[in-house]
Structures are given as structure tokens and as C-alpha cells.
Design a protein around this nucleic acid. Structure first.
Lengths: 349, 349
DNA sequence: TTGTATGCGTTATCAG
DNA sequence: CTGATAACGCATACAA
């Protein structure tokens, strides 16, 4: 029982604790920072005093003095075209939080619009403000200026995903970064598909580009020519547009691989509307399992990744850079293909 | 062109700005805190100097001195039963961010597991730490201790959703809080349905309870007896369990209203598996439009809310409590029923 | 209109 | 092992 919670909880400072336990403020500080030099008895007395007074160190004073904010920033940049979509699954967030919370770190969220100009400003400010000790990045662009900028600013950062080719930057991703797409292709080839198309996000983003390239490679190793490889955008609308276009070709594909589940689901919806049967006429594969992909009719065959783990590893890597003594988390789980009803034997035509 | 970005960006402090513009530190402070008393010319000089030096006030020092952290906390409590589900759509997050970011506030995210014991601790710490000036709450429980606790701690807070009945607490929700369910019932009644069941989240949560009650009221005003009202849990699995049970009754309903879209989608999936036609045999209605609800087959009839707006209003209310001079945002948009293919005329049996 | 002095709560240093 | 004391960077009353 902590008595009197609301007893005009003034600002109980370290001085109060020191006074109550009859020691100096420095002694209290030492105890609560794990720095030795305090006798066991004294430490117990100090801890008790702090407990009684309900004292917690002021994060502001701590930050000022130690220039550690004990917070990491998560920076999401939304696409202008699709302001409603945050390129981040809640699971990643959860993973990050799980790691940092128990180490006393907070997660400061930032959502920037996709405007490189004020983004520059924003990052500068972030570094100058020192509200965070490091940042987590997502959704890298091919010509992303953030990597150089952050390096210049000296702000520790870890990218969730892969950096642009040729650039070395701390990041967390599967190896190879295109993992998952190869399995999708293999699965379709085994089902007898020869005419396969890929419809994914814009080539200006690293992740979609990598996936498109992985598709091309996988097709090549299967000895196949892709029917189409479309890099367009990550929205449902764009997926439909691209699907329409691809299916209107003289030799339409019998299977479609998408860069994301929402794209795939939207396309399924559209295809059904045109009277095509899935998977009778055309097979559909998604990417990055959405919980609801399972409930589609037919269920969507897709690639699932351990998103919570992605978040955890990213957080761990960042904290390691910040100097915390954490074990290397090792590689990420390999993405897995989940076969459901949206893929079937190739139509015989 | 800001010259020399990486010129060992030491700690450029307010003193540097003062020196460069030939004034005292106090003058600089005054300019950047909107307190008058500085001549236009001097102010311009000061601002230019700050610009040149890339100076931003240290958030730590500011927080220490002014005891304002310029951050708000968003507290999510995940259900133990379903650790992968954050009870929060990204849109709400986006709405919050849009409001607070341009006012210089940061969003500090916290995810607690559903354990009331350490939750208490966590809130105490949150208040003591003063890392946030106020908090946003979600997912209220009927016997939620947080409201009293936060009041005791003097930590400003706004609940997204409605507080437990009988309790007054700053919050943002539709009026009435059950809005949307009534429309669903009316829609089904107009289609000729008489046997309607409701399957929603647990009664221990405020929101699900309110929705269940709204369902009962709407049924009563239509002169109907509900076939079933199940309060179970918000997961897909639980929705399926409940659906199975409800449909096995001697007189199964011809229409099902669910407390959430994921529940509805999972149930649709299950119902199809049992050979039932949607909406031929049974109509299905969801709640809180998920973008993908549209792509189900048939499309899911559901209630959509302006989630971004919910987030914005919650943030605005909190900032108003914190003393910012913002206009009252007024009421939320009323939820709208979106009729898609999952609802149709009542089966004739 | 501008400058000076002081304190916010903590940690680091260094002498006891 | 302990206790002063000086920063950390800023905001504010008050003096000029």
C-alpha cells in the first residue's frame, strides 16, 4: 500500500530522497544508476526512502544532464498518393515496443508526408532536438537522402527493410531481401503455370524494386519469360488498374503475383467482377500476410513474414548501436508461403 | 544552402545564437516563445542567426525548465488472449499525429499487456516520469481503474471511445456511442429479416457492451426479439465459435451483426464452409470498415467511421485540456452503413 | 526594448 | 564510502 497517492505530489526530487535517507543527492544518484560505491545498508535505506516518497528520476533532468532521451523515434513516411495508408503493420510496432519498453525506452512516433524537402528539415530538427537517441526508418526510397543525412547528423538509425543497392546502412531484413517471391514463383510453376505476371509497388522504393527483381530472377531460373512485370504503386486502385491492363494483353497470364495482400485482394475482387474464376482461370498470390487474407473467398495464397520479429530485431539493433549490451538477435525467420485457395493448376489454354 | 552540415555540429546552444546576433540569451528565448518585447529588427536578426546555426531549443532543457514535455502518450492495452492485435487502426494514429505534429508535440507510444497490476504501476511511472503532458486512452473496460488513477495522478487524459456508464471523463465518441448499430438493424429489418443475432466483443469492455445494448434497443424499437446476443471476444476465432453456436439453434437467425469487420469476415468464411450462401441463406453485417471489407466475396456490408477524425478530435481535446487555444472540433461524423453484397432479402423459411 | 541573475533536477568530479 | 559543487540548456522575474 502506497499511502496518500494524491498528497499534493509536489515535485519530489532527488534531494527529498537524500534528506529522508540522510545521505547526499550524489549517493542517491549512484544507487539508481547502478554505479557502485554505496554500502548495502545505505542503499536499502535510500531505496526505501525513494519508494516511500514515490520518487522517480525526472526524465527531463536526466535527459538534460546525460543527453540521453531514452527514447527512439519511429519514422513513417506516408505516400502522398495514399495518405490513409501507413506503411507499417501494427505487429512491427508491437515488436519494437516489446523490446524497448522493458529497457526503459519510449517510442516516439513521427509520420512525415512524402515530401523530401520538409523531410530534410524534419530530420535536422529531430537530430537537433535530441528528443530521441536514435531512429527506426521504413520504406526506403532508391534515391533516399535520409541515409546520408542521418550519417551526417550523427543520429543512430536502423532501417526496417533493405537500403538502396550499393549503400551500406544498418538494417533488418530477410536474406535475400527478395525472399518469399521465389517461393511464390516456384509454387506456381509447380502448378503448371508458364505465363506469370508480377504487379508490385513503385520502382522508386527499394522493397518493391527488390521484389520485382527477385521475381525476374526466379522466372529466369525456371526458364520462363515473365508475361509482365508492372511496377506501379501500392494502392488497391493501382493494383486494379495494372491487373486490368495485364489481363487485356493478347496472351494474358494464368497467374498473378502481387507485391502486397491488399493489392492482391483488390485484384481478386476485380477479376471476379469480370467473370473470371479464381483459381480456375487465374491464380493469385499476395505478399505479407494480412490476417484477413485467410477469409477471402477463395482464401488468398500469400507470403507471411514474422512482423513482430522484424520490429523486435530492428529495435535490438538500434539499441545495440546505442551501446546497450544486447545479444545479436541473429537472422530473421524466413518468409513462408501459405498456400490457400487462390492458386490452382494452370488453366489449359 | 546551409553550409557545412557536418561541421562537428557540437551543441549549438541558445548562447551561440545570442552571441551571433549580438543579444542576450534572454532575448533569444523571448523570440522563440512568442513573448513580446523584442524589436522587429532584432527579432529578424535573432531568427536569422538561429536559422544559420541550425539551432533548435533543446527539448530536454525546455522540459526541465518549463515542466512541459511537449509530448502526449498513446496507451494501448492489448488483450492477453490476442497479443497480435493492437486495438487501434493506423488511421486513428494518423489523425493524432496530424494534429500534434504541427503544434510541436510528439507522440509517445505505449503498449501494455492487459494486466491491471503492472498497468497501475505503468501509469504511476508515466505520471511521475513526466515524459508526457497528457495521455490518450483506448479500449476502456467497464471496471476500468485507469480513470480514477489518472485523475488522482493529475495526468490529463482523453479517452477514445466512451467511458463506463455513470462515469464522467473527457472522451471522444459518437453520439450516441452505439451509433451505427441502429442503422444495421434498420437495414436488415427493411430487407425483411426478423430473426437477427448479434455477436460482439466482451461485455467487460465498454465499447462492445454499448454496441450490444444498442442492438437490443434497435431490435426493441422494431418490435423484434433478438435471436441471440453473444458477447464473447473480439478475435476471429471467437467470432467463429459464436457463429457456430448461434447457427445451430433450433431457429437459426437469417442475419448476423458483428462487433467488428474481422469477426464478420471470419464468420463469413466459416459460413461458406458449412455450405450456407451469403446473403441467400444468411446476411452478414460488420462494424468499422476495414479497407479490405470491400474485397470480400460478397463484399461485406459494414459500418464505417471516420477514424482519422476520431484521432484528430481526441488529440485536439487533449491539447485543449493542456491549455492550447484550439477551437472545439465539434461532433464526430456520424457512422455510415455501407451496403454491399453480404446483406440481402431474408431467406423465406 | 534589452540584459542579468537564478533555478529547474540530475549527474560527474573531486576532495574528504 | 560520502558530500559539496559545478555544469547541462533554457526560461523567467527583475533590473537597467
Amino acid at each position: 500500500m502506497t499511502q496518500q497517492v494524491s498528497r499534493s505530489e509536489k515535485n519530489v526530487t532527488i534531494a527529498d530522497v537524500a534528506a529522508r535517507s540522510g545521505v547526499s543527492r550524489a549517493a542517491v544518484s549512484k544507487v539508481f544508476n547502478g554505479r557502485g560505491g554505496i554500502s548495502v545498508a545505505t542503499e536499502a535505506r535510500i531505496r526505501k526512502a525513494a519508494e516511500d516518497l514515490g520518487w522517480t528520476r525526472s526524465s527531463a533532468a536526466f535527459a538534460l544532464r546525460s543527453s540521453k532521451s531514452m527514447a527512439v523515434g519511429l519514422i513513417l513516411n506516408t505516400a502522398v498518393a495514399d495518405p490513409d495508408a501507413i506503411p507499417m503493420t501494427p505487429q512491427v510496432l508491437l515488436g519494437i515496443e516489446q523490446v524497448i519498453a522493458k529497457l526503459g525506452y519510449g517510442l516516439l512516433l513521427h509520420v512525415f508526408s512524402d515530401n523530401p524537402e520538409d523531410e530534410n528539415q524534419a530530420y535536422r530538427r529531430l537530430a537537433a532536438d535530441k528528443r530521441v537517441d536514435g531512429v527506426l526508418l521504413t520504406n526506403a526510397r532508391i534515391d533516399d537522402a535520409r541515409f546520408k543525412l542521418l550519417a551526417d547528423l550523427g543520429l543512430p538509425a536502423v532501417l526496417i527493410g533493405s537500403p538502396p543497392p550499393g549503400l551500406s546502412f544498418p538494417h533488418v531484413d530477410n536474406t535475400p531481401p527478395g525472399a518469399g517471391v521465389d517461393e511464390s514463383v516456384r509454387h506456381l510453376v509447380e502448378l503448371g503455370h508458364r505465363k506469370i505476371a508480377y504487379i508490385g509497388g513503385p520502382n522508386s522504393r527499394v522493397q518493391p524494386k527488390i521484389r520485382a527483381e527477385a521475381f525476374l530472377e526466379s522466372m529466369a531460373s525456371a526458364g520462363l519469360q515473365p508475361t509482365a512485370t508492372v511496377s506501379i504503386g501500392s494502392t488497391a486502385e493501382m493494383a486494379v488498374t495494372a491487373t486490368k491492363q495485364v489481363m487485356c494483353q493478347p496472351e494474358p497470364p494464368t497467374a498473378l503475383i502481387f507485391g502486397g495482400d491488399v493489392m492482391a485482394m483488390a485484384a481478386m475482387h476485380y477479376l471476379r467482377g469480370t467473370g473470371l474464376d479464381i483459381p480456375g482461370d487465374v491464380s493469385v498470390v499476395g505478399f505479407d500476410d494480412q490476417p484477413v487474407a485467410e477469409y477471402m473467398n477463395p482464401g488468398l495464397t500469400t507470403v507471411t513474414r514474422n512482423s513482430t520479429q522484424r520490429g523486435m530485431h530492428a529495435a535490438i539493433q538500434l539499441l545495440r548501436i546505442l551501446g546497450l549490451d544486447l545479444p545479436d538477435p541473429g537472422p530473421l525467420d524466413r518468409p513462408r508461403l501459405i498456400v490457400r485457395g487462390s492458386t490452382g493448376p494452370a488453366a489449359d489454354r
